[in-house]
Design a binder for these strands. Structure first.
Lengths: 344, 344
DNA sequence: ATGAAAGCGCTAACAA
DNA sequence: TTGTTAGCGCTTTCAT
């Protein structure tokens, strides 16, 4: 098999014009059956493939989506990306992925690099840094450039676009309430993502339940970190209080670390302490005991975001108003919580 | 901000020719300072960005790499991909990623979709199915089409290209020997990837040690699965033998599941049983006790593969012979193994 | 039924 | 210093 062959070359070899070749390859009615056959056979024999750049240049669409992911090592995002890939493939779209590693600058650079005809639209989850700095110009400018954007999971009201999110407050509320229904009397809270809006929302849901049901609420019971640094130390400190009989962790690392510490302290899960987590990544299923957790349906988030984007790409012209797609969550019961107890 | 503006439009507005604009934007010495200034300022004001498709069409290179990943939910591959992304970005390359989900057909389709000018080269890890069927034509054909390919982790001698791998036999040998040095007398083996060549190599390393040191070797001590199905059941069966005092697991899921089962059986890790794993993904650090394991340096594998590919892309012409890049492994000691004991 | 020519956005050789 | 032209690979309109 030789190198890439072009229409022009086929034309020359067969002694016809390029337009004839083009039409023949598209099976146009204008071309004689015989010529078509000749062209098609030769093209096949030479393993001809139309140059996609030339096509894209002409159509002004690349069938490619730019995807920004904060951190691919986080299994939640891996699941979302998996969902995105699945849906994109289904519609014949390619993915250019970029892992921002929570960096604002990487976001800016990536958008700069791709918003020049390389991609048709963006799928993005805001980085921690961006959220912290509240600088969204790079995303806001996309609207003027007529490049559709769909934000997923971590979003901002400052950016006008379609969004796919879960209800963090409500989900955290349900998780905490779940522990309460198990007769937990002293429920702690652990988070390493308090720097994120989603983290704050989850804290809000937690507090809301305690307040509503008049459970004793103490600042001491909340570990609110913005990174994984010092997580273990903080947990060890928290667990000095041995009346804690329930823990709501807002991210997987917190859950796994809490279980490690509890094991080391000889406190039994779930007999002494019930634990409920959030996200349902790979860890949840595999730590021991396996973790009862709030499932976020990562793949679903990815699929829906992709569908929204493609819809907009293929229905240019009739600009529909932006919408927010709320994905439900569910609690997956595993072995880190006691059996369900109906409250007296 | 308005829509995308082209050189042609700039030329029209400023009353000059397109080539003048092009040269001015490139700061050519041919153009008068004044004209350059006018053009550059106007371009900036209009947020002009050169259309990357047009450029690529001209240069015949897209600065884009196609990446095939068997399964992004596997943290080992996530780490590799992270390394790839990092290195690619450093050199100004974009990534089109595709998750094959271990499917042969998905590989074929992706290559078909991208090998038409969309990408400059491929980075790929063979899918389980492909390896099983031993059908490599889709990769082999790339050589004829002059599209460079670098295979990482799961490779085949039937494919002529650069490769980045670890020494699986040797690494498994070292891991097993490590247990032996801890005075383990009855070492079991668990794998859910025996369908893969890498899985078989690891089994080979395990057997090699036992043989060399005359430890009793029994088929019964080996759980050799090709998927995660029935993993737990097999482990439960294996552990009926309570003389087992060491386990070498070849993938993370096996390790996590083994620990869960051991916990349930009340057998203590590492006091009763020492466990060593492979891969050092997210699970290893977070299960309890944290797992002693063979670290594969996933990021490194990704980085090196990317560097090899880019090197080849940028030095077309002088075709260097293909090479194999062997990445070292190391044992990370955590708490699933007893303290090191010098053998008598 | 076939071909010539323009154009997608840009660069570069050549002309003026 | 600036402009004209051809060409990257392809499609499409408009001749012929």
């Amino acid at each position: 098999m030789n190198k890439r062959i072009t229409i022009k070359e086929i034309a020359k070899v067969l002694g016809v014009s390029v337009s004839t070749v083009s039409k023949a390859l598209h099976d146009s009615y204008e071309i004689s059956t015989e010529t078509k056959k000749r062209v098609q056979e030769y093209a096949k024999a030479q393993n001809y493939k139309p140059n996609s750049l030339a096509l894209s240049l002409q159509n002004k669409r690349t069938k490619t989506i730019g995807v920004l992911v904060p951190n691919i090592l986080n299994t939640f995002f891996a699941r979302v990306l998996n969902g995105i890939e699945c849906e994109a493939t289904k519609h014949g779209y390619k993915l250019i992925t970029c892992f921002t590693n929570e960096s604002y600058q990487k976001e800016v650079d990536t958008i700069e690099m791709l918003a020049n005809g390389t991609i048709d639209g963006f799928l993005a989850c805001l980085s921690q840094e961006t959220l912290k700095m509240e600088k969204f110009d790079h995303f806001q400018e996309l609207e003027g450039q007529d490049i559709p954007l769909v934000l997923y999971d971590r979003v901002s009201s400052k950016i006008n676009c379609d969004k796919v999110v879960i209800d963090n407050v409500k989900s955290a509320y349900k998780a905490t309430k779940y522990l309460m229904n198990l007769n937990c009397k002293n429920i702690a809270f652990i988070s390493t993502i308090h720097g994120l809006n989603v983290g704050k929302f989850r804290a809000k849901g937690y507090k809301k339940v305690l307040k509503k049901y008049n459970q004793n609420f103490s600042k001491k019971n909340m570990v609110k970190l913005e990174s994984k640094e010092n997580l273990r130390k903080n947990i060890e400190k928290l667990l000095k209080d041995d009346t804690i009989d329930g823990i709501f962790t807002v991210d997987e690392t917190s859950a796994a670390t809490a279980i490690q510490v509890l094991n080391e302290l000889g406190r039994k899960v779930p007999e002494d302490v019930s634990l409920i987590g959030f996200t349902n990544g790979i860890l949840s299923k595999h730590i021991s005991p396996p973790l009862t957790t709030v499932n976020q349906f990562g793949e679903k988030i990815g699929e829906n975001a992709t569908r929204m984007l493609i819809e907009r790409l293929e229905n240019k012209g009739e600009a529909a108003p932006y919408s927010v797609n709320l994905i439900r969550t569910e609690i997956i019961e595993r072995k880190s919580t006691r059996r369900y107890v109906v409250k007296a």
